[in-house]
Design a protein around this nucleic acid. Structure first.
Lengths: 309, 309
DNA sequence: TTGTAGGCGTTATCAG
DNA sequence: CTGATAACGCCTACAA
């Protein structure tokens, strides 16, 4: 009756409600949880590496997820992966402390997705799993993003285009390169110089160093993350190349790093908040009914033009 | 008996434990919570602004707190402040969904600390409250940090020293300046040019612009956060000043921003992980026994010398 | 040492 | 439409 039941006299309801608000009564959620079998809490699981959680990307994920969870009073439990995270999460799920899990940037070596799947718990991934799994995920159209970068560089007149990729063993790194290459090929430049980074600023700097040695005539670079671009720009400057006049640079993500770059970075923006909100929605749907069909929701990226290209 | 009871035969205990592990039995925590009156969850409350949670500082807080919480199975619930966060948190506390709260970078206008205090719930702040409150907090010795910056700049021979401060209406901003000024005065330079920023990269850039106009002979600057320094460095370059030869720069925080700077930033490091761990410990102590005395735990900063000064 | 009953605060069910 | 009662799963006490 504390909950919304329609079958009550208005008069008596008023009285009770007055009593409630005067007493400051609040239902004990542990007791409720005991019978409803809902924890009203979901976990956001992140790789433990320094960068990810300090990455502005993460802020946006939290904001998007919170936007959905907060209004319905569901808690967001933050979990950084560690040696025994898998067991931890699994038992939290079984113990009824967690209703489901959002896995962000999980590595392909992780067994967690598979285990969660096997135990038939609500799960959503933040990107296409490396190996095909019957699992719901939300992603940005990575290939389209890579293609947008290619088209922008060519359109602004770059003739010697190269790319610094992310980790190629991870789907986003792989797909961005594929999209970029395909688009370049379509525009008559099938052979693009490629250097592999690992999404970090340091790797971006190293890759740019290598790129300049190997391909000094370069006049346009697609760098598969803003963070790598942030590392790469000082290297260009060090070598006396001005951006965008000597070399045009397009990043990926539109993180704060893009704004902190000098010059501000032209980049491919992912609608991270929207994607995160969708992850939350998909997860809640699974919590609601366990027979929810598996889905892949793909968002379209947008090119944000600033000064680097 | 599932818990540690000593009054049991070794033999039978073995049997039961085998059964437990083979069945994969796990106690339902909602039920346990119902009787123990513990949620085994605490909240980390952060200001909602873009920057804080995307700030590497935040990563370190999470890592420190998680280090304490994880081993004892306590959940970390992430809450970004919003219009009604206060009520939300308070009712979560009352409903027994939360055992306590860590307030990070709370603004002085927030009424939450006072309310929590009044309802006698476990709370810990991440810094000295603006107005004196009988509340437990963990902080770095901000003044000592400011003084270290001053001493380093003077020691390396800077004669025209200035500072870009953080928000002066916030204790850290205020205290860093005080410590810096006092130390400069002690070393015979009582009048230091001061420009106020607000801890953001943009404000750092604007402040540096203003500083160069107003005090062109400047050859050493203490910038009260790495993020502001990151914004300020391109401005120095734009004006043809090389760092550290023309102008030496010392930051504060030792966030990743310090490493992403060009050149890498000499900065005052806060032991954020340790501080966060201490916050968790203090909070758990309060959860354990509500008569835990109020404490202020102060950590000492360390100067990290890189290339900017 | 082991077994049993009662209660924690809700929700859900089933007569009245 | 209302009111009583049985779970929910665990812990604590008290008996056996």
């Amino acid at each position: 009756m504390v909950n919304r039941v329609t079958t009550v006299d208005e008069s008596i309801r008023k009285v009770v409600e007055r009593a409630i608000s005067s007493t400051g009564y609040l239902p004990n959620l542990a007791a409720r949880s005991l019978v409803t079998r809902r924890a009203d809490a979901i976990a956001l699981v992140l790789p433990h590496e320094n960068r990810i959680i300090g990455d502005p990307f993460f802020t946006r994920v939290v904001r998007g997820v919170t936007g959905i969870l907060r209004p319905i009073g569901v808690h967001l439990v933050l979990i950084m992966t560690g040696p025994d995270t898998g067991d931890q999460v699994l038992s939290d799920l079984r113990q009824g402390r967690l209703d489901g899990v959002i896995l962000v940037h999980t590595h392909q070596t992780d067994q967690l997705p598979g285990e969660l799947l096997r135990s038939r718990r609500p799960v959503v991934l933040s990107a296409r799993p490396a190996e095909p799994l019957p699992i719901t995920y939300v992603d940005v159209n990575q290939k389209a993003g890579g293609a947008m970068a290619a088209e922008h560089l060519v359109a602004r007149g770059c003739r010697y285009v190269a790319t610094i990729t992310g980790s190629l063993d991870r789907p986003p790194g792989h797909d961005r390169l594929t999209g970029f290459r395909n688009a370049m090929a379509t525009m008559g430049q099938p052979d693009v110089v490629t250097v592999e980074g690992d999404f970090t600023a340091e790797s971006g700097a190293a890759a740019m160093e290598q790129l300049i040695q190997q391909y000094p005539e370069v006049d346009g670079v697609f760098i598969a993350s803003d963070l790598m671009a942030q590392g790469a720009l000082p290297v260009l400057r060090k070598h006396g190349r001005s951006v965008p006049d000597d070399v045009a640079v397009v990043g990926f993500d539109d993180s704060n790093a893009a704004l902190n770059c000098d010059p501000p970075l032209t980049t491919v923006r992912q609608p991270v908040e929207d994607m995160a909100a969708e992850m939350a929605r998909q997860l809640l749907r699974q919590v609601e009914r366990s027979d929810t069909p598996i889905r892949a929701v793909i968002f379209e990226p947008v090119l944000v033009v600033r000064q680097s290209a």
